[in-house]
Structure formats: C-alpha cells, structure tokens
C-alpha cells in the first residue's frame, strides 16, 4: 500500500496545523457561565466520540470490502481502524467521566450513549482478540470481518433498546432528548468544529501509521514462514 506511505506526511502535517488552530481557539473561548473552565473538556470529548463511531463505520466498510473482494489491504485497514477506534472510545469514556463528576455529580450513569459506548469498547476488544486467537490468519480475518458486520447491525439495536429502557422504565436521569439538548452556539462553536476536523485527521493519521505497521508485521511473518519452510 504505497499510497499510505505517500499520504502519511501530508495527513500528519494537516493534523498538526488543525490541532494547533483548534487548541488556540479553545484557549481563547470564554468559560461557560454555569460550568466554568470545565466546559473545555467538551472540545476533547465530543470529537473523540465522533472518531470512536466513525472508526467503526470505516471498519465495517473495510470489512464488507474484504469479504466481497478479498483485498488484503481492506483487512489491514480494518485491523488498524479497530485499535484506533478502541483508543478513541477509551478517551471518550474517560473524558466523559471526568466531565460528569463535577457536572452531574457522578462518574457514570447508565444512559443510552454511555452504555452504547461501553458496549462499543467491548466490541472493539472482541474484534482485536478474535483475530489473534485463530491460528490461520485468513480465517481470523474473515471471522473478524463477519463479527464487525454483526456488531454494526447490533449497535443501533443496543442504542435504541437502552433509550427505550430508560424512557419506559424510569424518567431519563440525564437530559438526552432533543427538546432538552444543550445548544452550543456563539464563540464555543468554531473551536468545536475545527477540533472535530483535527480529530478526524488525527484518526486518519493513526490509521495510516497503524496500517503500515501491520503491513510490515505481516510481511515479516511471511518471510519468517518462508525461512522456516526453506530450513526444512
């Protein structure tokens, strides 16, 4: 995948510039009149959550492509997206918790978004473990791709079942409905948009780095297998 080698420095540079501008805006943005300076964690939390979900979308697309056309490149990208997605899911959960403690008075609440994110993390972990616990790499790749697609179908069901659970079972403990959603406007908006773009670029950059690393790893494994074969 020569293309990755070519685009990697460009994506890296774009990421740095976008991050620098975005963080400058965050520094300049006024503190919230209710939340004070703690509101700034939003600029990490929201873009991370976007990348955590976008990675899964990317991973699903790559998995479908792999099952359909059997491109090894698609499988490498899927493997890279799983670890990048897992990393951003952890960041989302951690930053959400840190933000939740001063704002809601609790580290954790079983609302739809938190629950879905936690399940997403376990799913990423499952994808990573499944791939490496099968001895035949082709079988591992295929099983992982199928699991990714099943997860993609299951995630919306999980999300809506938790929404349903919370609305029918007891009133939502947090304001998650559209009517009560907090609207982010004015000076808070530009840094959020710029940082979202920066995080998308960062996610892409991490995927390219990880994909090249996986490709090299597989190449080494193939060489090792060939050497063993030769020795016999």
């Amino acid at each position: 995948m020569n293309i990755l080698k070519k685009i990697q420095p460009l994506v890296g540079l774009a990421t740095l510039i976008a991050l620098a501008i975005g963080l400058w805006y965050v520094y300049q943005a006024p503190a919230d009149f209710q939340q004070g300076g703690a509101v700034r964690i939003l600029y990490i939390h929201v873009p991370s959550a976007k990348i955590a979900l976008l990675s899964y979308l990317f991973l699903t697309a790559a998995s479908i492509l792999y099952l359909w056309k059997r491109y090894e490149g698609a499988d490498i990208l899927a493997e890279a997206a799983a670890s990048v997605g897992a990393a951003f899911t952890v960041i989302t959960l951690a930053s959400g918790s840190i933000w939740g403690k001063p704002m809601w008075g609790t580290w954790w609440a079983w609302d739809a978004r938190l629950t879905s994110m936690l399940v997403l993390l376990i799913l990423y972990k499952g994808l990573m473990v499944l791939r490496h616990s099968l001895d035949d790499p082709v079988k591992g790749a295929r099983a992982t791709a199928i699991l990714a697609i099943i997860g993609a179908v299951d995630l919306p069901i999980i999300h809506y079942s938790v929404v349903w659970w919370r609305t029918l079972h007891q009133p939502p403990s947090l304001a998650t409905g559209e009517n009560t959603a907090v609207h982010i406007t004015g000076p808070l908006l530009p840094p959020l948009l710029i940082l979202s773009v920066a995080f998308i670029l960062l996610g892409l950059y991490m995927v390219t780095v990880k994909a090249r690393q996986i490709e090299a790893r597989r190449h080494l494994d193939a060489l090792e297998a060939a050497r063993m074969h030769h020795d016999e």
Binding site: L123, V129, L130, S133, I146, D154, I158, S161
Partner: peptide
C-alpha cells in the same frame, strides 16, 4: 462456529456474546 479452533475459546465466546446480547 466463529471461535471453532480458537485459543481459549470459552473466554472468547463470552467476550463476544455478552455485549451483543445487551438488547
């Protein structure tokens, strides 16, 4: 079927099945 022949498959099965059965 997916974890057939996998290492420590019982643990793997639990890790994969439990989150997907949340609904």
């Amino acid at each position: 079927a997916m974890t057939r022949g996998a290492r420590s498959r019982e643990t793997l099965l639990a890790l994969l099945l439990l989150p997907l059965t949340a609904p």
